[in-house]
């Protein structure tokens, strides 16, 4: 039996599932990386994802195409990003309060609209995002199964990780973004308003979290919306951001790790109650948060040791 478990854990199916579970978290984490670099503690990502999930399905339902759904999500992402920045950047409100309120607001708004439009049971089977088949990839035995025939956004995410990484570390705007969070007055005395970069980061975060939600409803669940379907993914994404120090590539890696544990949980369902295996990614998140802090503390202590007492 133990062998069976191991076999099912390290199957292509597990790794494919890892990819699927990781993608919405990864997309949101990319957005969270932007606000984190801009020095904003963004715990409102869960709400942003939920709005993305809803408006994706709504667009798809209204216009009969997933593309229209995504277009609506992008518009919504910009609006939500602007809204978030208005409070956090312009009014300098407490990020924690605004983030929490945004999450509750999103839950209320999407549930209200969903019930008003689709009725109490929600909606299913709206036009969904296509899966992508890459010819020839199947020839590679294990990888082919893992990487091929996935929903469009899984591949889009790879592209976005690269783009966001280049943006943050290889373009002047990325430098300004990081300066706006790390030391805003530096940017101000250089003649660039740090607030501008914070607004930009909020909008990008709204867009990317929106895409995360769209992938959830239009990709993963094939055009379905269910109430509270973000299911704390925004918070997991936040943990990924902290863990990765907002490096998009590392954040994607962290998201994959969650995906992996989530997939293992699903595999173990035959042996252990799914209610217990469901907790694994969340426990991992807590362990990660602790690890991040302990790591930085140890590093500091280490730095102290490296520099000996001054010699006079």
């Amino acid at each position: 039996m133990f062998e069976d478990i191991l076999k099912s854990i390290f199957s292509a199916g597990t790794f494919n599932q890892m990819l699927r579970s990781a993608t919405p978290v990864a997309l949101a984490a990319l957005g969270g990386a932007m606000t984190e670099h801009a020095g904003i503690m963004n715990i409102g990502m869960d709400g942003m994802i939920l709005m993305g999930a809803f408006f994706g399905v709504l667009g798809s339902y209204l216009f009969g195409s997933a593309a229209a759904g995504v277009a609506l999500v992008l518009a919504m992402g910009i609006v939500v990003g602007l809204f978030f920045a208005l409070f956090v950047v312009k009014f300098k409100s407490d990020e924690f309060i605004i983030g929490t309120a945004l999450n509750t607001f999103a839950l209320g708004l999407t549930s209200f609209l969903s019930r008003s439009i689709f009725g109490a049971s929600g909606t299913k089977g709206n036009p969904a995002l296509p899966t992508v088949h890459i010819p020839g990839l199947d020839a590679i035995p294990f990888l082919g199964q893992v990487l091929n025939d996935n929903s469009l956004f899984i591949y889009l995410t790879w592209l976005l990780v690269l783009v966001m990484w280049l943006f943050v570390y290889k373009t002047p705007y990325g430098f300004w973004l990081r300066a706006s969070g790390e030391k805003p007055e530096t940017l101000r005395t250089a003649g660039i308003a740090p607030e501008k970069m914070k607004w930009l980061a909020s909008i990008l975060c709204g867009l990317l979290c929106g895409l995360a939600g769209a992938h959830l409803s239009l990709g993963q669940l094939q055009g379905t919306f269910a109430e509270d379907m973000a299911n704390s993914r925004g918070y997991i994404a936040f943990a990924c951001v902290i863990f990765s120090k907002a490096n998009p590539a590392v954040a994607y890696g962290a998201a994959l790790m969650f995906g992996f544990f989530d997939a293992i949980g699903l595999r173990l369902q035959d042996y252990i109650s799914s209610d217990l295996t469901n907790t694994i990614p969340y426990i991992i998140t807590i362990i990660m948060m602790v690890y991040v802090v302990v790591r930085s503390q140890r590093r500091k202590r280490h730095a102290g040791k490296r520099l000996p007492a001054r010699q006079t």
Binding site: T171, P172, G174, W176, R178, E182, K183, A190
Partner: peptide, 26 residues
């Protein structure tokens, strides 16, 4: 000091008037 601690000396010096490669890249 108005310096970004994690940036290198050169990156701090050129901040806001960065040399570019292919228009968008630092």
């Amino acid at each position: 000091f108005m310096l970004v601690p994690s940036f290198t000396v050169a990156q701090n010096i050129v901040l806001s008037r960065e040399p570019r490669r292919g228009r968008v890249f630092f």
